[in-house]
Write a protein that binds this DNA or RNA. Structure first.
Lengths: 355, 355
DNA sequence: GTTAGCACTCTTTTTCTTTGAGTGCTAATT
DNA sequence: AATTAGCACTCAAAGAAAAAGAGTGCTAAC
């Protein structure tokens, strides 16, 4: 099964209205109870006007089409991945947010925070609490920011703090111990050299190769300053390493229906796994399931939505939770939050923040 | 039950040698298998020369004394907390480290790292991998370091990075957004004011009260610079907040014999819980069990050992794992590591690091 | 003091039975 | 032609009963 985008309308057109209604009802019920759903349960629902026998016939069709399955002969039905997919794409009733909910979400966004990344962080935290899921964030900074400053500050015998600041207001630091103390002249040269050669360079692009070239071109200062350049390289890496953040993993580990070994495995190479999923080639909202393209936590799903800036994908925010998730509620939450963030970081441009 | 120190020799003197041997054998076996241990198992051990019946009699006595217990009548014995305590204090055979093991541990210590805290961090990481436990660290810095520098660096419209550096080479930063841009004069005043009033102050002591007094005494600069002072306060807090670090929690969460809810609970107030345990009033090595003084993870134990400097307790390093732990191996590991760190951070004083 | 022997206890495992939810199919109904 | 009632069938889950087995405590012998 491949990762797929949302809003691929039309797959469900093979189904008549009643079958759609039944499929949706089965999934709604399964999401709440976690138990296989039988024909009787569906028949007793207020919106359903047909007998259990009819529902059984329809469910048999839905099973043949691959939307439902039976754990065993005498059990009710549970949704397949394809069933969930159809449900999310076409069947479910996304609950429109009430004014109170909007207010609640607005309050969660900490607009006083100085960087866009921190704004997203605040949304992530709120989302984790509201949904009891883990959250996943892809930060804006590496893509939209460039180095504005590299500083070196002496702090003790042969000890120096290296500082890298980006246009998005983010900062990383690193303590370096050198073999020799630097002279004032050396420090000045370093600052100037950095300003001339790295200012405006994206942290995304700052490779070891660039650094090596800079070292080679440094002339007499080469020996003394090379360790600092290496530190600069590590700082850029620190920026990149923090691009993708998963938090609230506790919420996943606490659940029995999710294999904790798989969670640990996922957390260990989250960067690779998530990076593939959050790129430009997908729609605004993306939902992937237990086995989709490299995402390998059984019985769990990841919902992410894009944050944009100047029309480009800037970052992403979403949740990782069990398959049995209240999609109808959570998807609007995520869409609202990413929407608000998109607005906020554009406003800022005209106002007082430069990202 | 209260937290207790190790090396409280003499409690086991009520027991004759054979009973001690049997108790040790039961615990050894239980640590490996996790199953209640019966008299037959013990009798078949090479070091034991008596019959199962004799062992049964002795085990009955050990049970009466509170060192062993029976899950049910027809089961073997398992150790009680008191049993473990006696085992660790007096009975177990701490395995002396081989040269290879010492080498291994030495290699894990990253001596190239610039700060003592980072050195401990490297030990913690190694320990977590070697023992498959969570590790707990109490850093040295807050106690042994003072503020050496507070800097403010402009990074954009009304955006400033606040920097705090301590004598131990640690650094924290914070991005602040102000209402107005600072003039050069204001920035100079701030730097000077910080240098005069905070240099040499311990991050441990930097309270809100001190900051408030500083703000009040700032005169005309008060309005503009107060937000920065607040940031300084937060930076000191950031230092204190990172004093105690638990890592490798995964190793605990993966185990079924430990209640994950209790782990989560513990992690949430680890600072309070651990702080109480790692103070000066205990011996060099401390082992606490599932219920000891505020430490509330059933079936688990925490082993910590002190790192010293100038004769004072400087930091601590240890592990949190299941009760069934290979104490005989792990305790020497921890003792060796904390010993080496103690040596290394003293050496540094004469050489090139100032902590 | 130590040990063999044995009855006793209590968990664990296995086997068998019962229960019940839910189905698929067929025939009747609309 | 679509829907429904009725019913036999399936299979997991729960329960009951039996068997197995590990380990003990006690007694009496060594």
């Amino acid at each position: 099964m491949k990762a797929q985008v949302l809003n691929r309308k039309g797959v469900g057109s093979l189904l008549d209205e009643r079958k759609k209604k039944i499929l949706a009802a089965v999934i709604d019920s399964y999401i709440v109870t976690g138990e296989p759903v039988g024909s009787k349960t569906i028949a007793s629902l207020p919106g359903i006007k047909v007998s259990p026998a009819t529902i059984r016939n329809d469910m048999a069709v839905l099973e043949q089409l691959g939307y439902l399955e039976q754990p065993h002969t005498s059990a009710g039905r549970i949704p397949t991945y394809n069933g969930y997919r159809l449900y999310i794409d076409e069947l479910m009733n996304a609950k429109a947010l009430s004014d109170e909910e909007k207010q609640l979400l607005d309050d969660c966004l900490d607009v006083d925070v100085p960087t866009a990344d921190a704004l997203i962080e605040s949304a992530s935290k709120a989302l984790s609490e509201l949904t009891h899921c883990a959250t996943v964030v892809k930060n804006i900074s590496p893509k939209f920011s460039v180095i504005t400053k590299v500083e070196v500050i002496p702090t003790g015998k042969r000890m120096y703090v290296l500082l890298m600041i980006t246009s998005s207001g983010n900062i990383r630091n690193k303590v370096c111990r050198l073999e020799f103390d630097l002279t004032n002249e050396q420090m000045e040269f370093f600052s100037k050299y950095m300003a001339e050669n790295l200012q405006g360079v994206s942290v995304d692009e700052l490779s070891e190769e660039i650094i090596e070239n800079l070292v080679a071109a440094m002339g007499t200062y080469m020996v003394t300053l090379a360790p600092l350049l290496k530190g600069v390289c590590e700082l850029a890496e620190a920026f990149r390493d923090t691009e993708i953040k998963v938090s609230g993993e506790k919420n996943l580990l606490a659940r029995q229906d999710i294999n904790s070994a798989q969670i640990v495995q996922f957390l260990e190479n989250k960067n690779e796994v998530v990076k593939n999923m959050l790129d430009d080639s997908f729609g605004d909202l993306q939902v992937v399931f237990g086995e989709d393209g490299g995402f390998v936590i059984e019985n769990s799903s990841m919902i992410v939505s894009k944050i944009k800036k100047d029309g480009r994908t800037a970052g992403t925010l979403g949740v990782i939770g069990p398959m049995r998730l209240d999609y109808a509620k959570i998807i609007p939450y995520i869409e609202y939050l990413t929407g608000r963030i998109t607005e906020l970081i554009s406003e800022d441009d005209d106002e007082d923040k430069d990202i």
